[in-house]
Design a protein around this nucleic acid. Structure first.
Lengths: 148, 148, 148, 148
DNA sequence: GTGGTCTAGACCACG
DNA sequence: GTGGTCTAGACCACA
């Protein structure tokens, strides 16, 4: 698990950690049921305080990306369904993103191409991951069945 | 100019103001050369501190959406070209957005459709705006020539 | 005895086990004098550490729901009377529960109806249980005489 | 604002603080729109760390009891509607509460009477509060309209 | 050994 | 002056 943090960024560290894990899960680097590093281990590896990592995990848990099993620590457990509020927020993000892209001279084709490419990249990453691990059951990850 | 602010949002108010203006410019509600309300007027109208509005304007200026003129105040003057850093940041946003959408069960089609719809909405808004104002030159807004 | 445990719950596992037994006793699934499964058997069945089950049993014993006998293991022996501290704690629970329900839009009628329904369910469960087992003496369970 | 904390309790301090505020809101001691004490002030008054208070506020915010206004700090803003998960959890609490009461010799009448009394107490507290403050609009608090 | 809680400081963005 | 973030420790419940 490599995790690049930018300590001088305006984005809080715990948020950066959270984002890294979301990306890792989406890319299939982490599959459903897989354990996350322990809070302490990751804190030491990343050179941050344990509470900061803890906060990131709490956030991931709250957002439905992971659950904390009392026996094993934190494990990936993706819900695969975002709630109404999350979707609304995502819509807002899209709206702003599109506006900025448009004003920045990015054509519709370029923007859509970028989105599709990123989506495709995730799909192939997850497919690759699924193929690599024998137990298909465990490798399903979070992607919808229709996508496989 | 109505701008709806959410004071209990996690997004800073000055950022919300900035976002509102970016959307307004992209939608053609504000066209190139048009004057923005004065800092004090907007601050009073929105019920926020003048410093907050000022900060939003500074940000817009820094990002190349407006220019400030001692005589005319702030006027829309969109650059129409993202710099390298801005494009990189946008890429990061897209990557995270796609990842979240993917894990949230949003299909590629749905996501692309939403992006295209939003882009289309801006184009038609701007077209309509262009048609409404006589001076075609001034009404072009910020869109690149290739798009017209 | 099926007991469903949620390992990702915020409620400790030993507490969940304890709760399951309290409910089982109240429902008449377990009657006075009946033996509980051995610590090791239950631990294996539930897939948890024996220490955890042991802790639950200690708690049940301490709260007056069961007694432990070196020969028979743990057997249900319900005291049928709350001590002062337990009653005070229960009052606190009720106070908080009512407050949360009230703020959550649950009407007095709805709340009372739910409580009565749950109470009734226990009574009928116990009656049924009493009828099913021949030895009336043993099947009385924990309910106070006044309730019969 | 008096706030009695039990530092030797097994209930986390931030949870106790949260509970106190829920009770205060339900009792009408705090009405909708009213400001909560600042994190630092309450921390000093209660003799706990600011982060502990902060955690309690975060919890209250997450549960929909308060919002944090960027200008004014934390203010009461009760949603008046609990979500599905919260209701399910409440049902579990009720079930366990009733079971414990039943086994503890509390009759159905006694239990229901206690619940109704507590509910009534909240209603009268809130009515009193509403009467005391002139602005009826502001004094509505969180109670459903039907209750007024 | 795990996460959860708490402390006593500190700095910063925001308004 | 507000809440939010972060640190470097510490203790504890849980399993």
């Amino acid at each position: 698990m490599i995790l690049t943090l930018n300590f001088s960024s305006e984005i809080p560290i715990y948020q950066q950690i959270r984002n890294s894990f979301v990306l890792a899960i989406a890319e299939g680097v982490l599959v459903n049921g897989e354990r996350l590093p322990t809070v302490r281990a990751l804190a030491q590896e990343a050179g941050v305080n344990a509470m900061t990592v803890n906060k990131a995990y709490q956030l991931l848990k709250q957002e439905g990306y992971i659950v904390t099993d009392r026996r094993n620590g934190a494990v990936v457990q993706c819900e695969g369904k975002l709630n109404e509020a999350a979707w609304e927020e995502m819509l807002g993000t899209i709206r702003l993103l599109v506006a900025e892209a448009r004003l920045g001279g990015v054509t519709r084709q370029e923007l859509v191409a970028e989105v599709e490419q990123q989506y495709q990249r995730l799909s192939s990453s997850k497919a690759e991951e699924a193929a690599r691990s024998m137990g298909a059951e465990a490798a399903i990850g979070c992607e919808p069945l229709a996508e496989r």
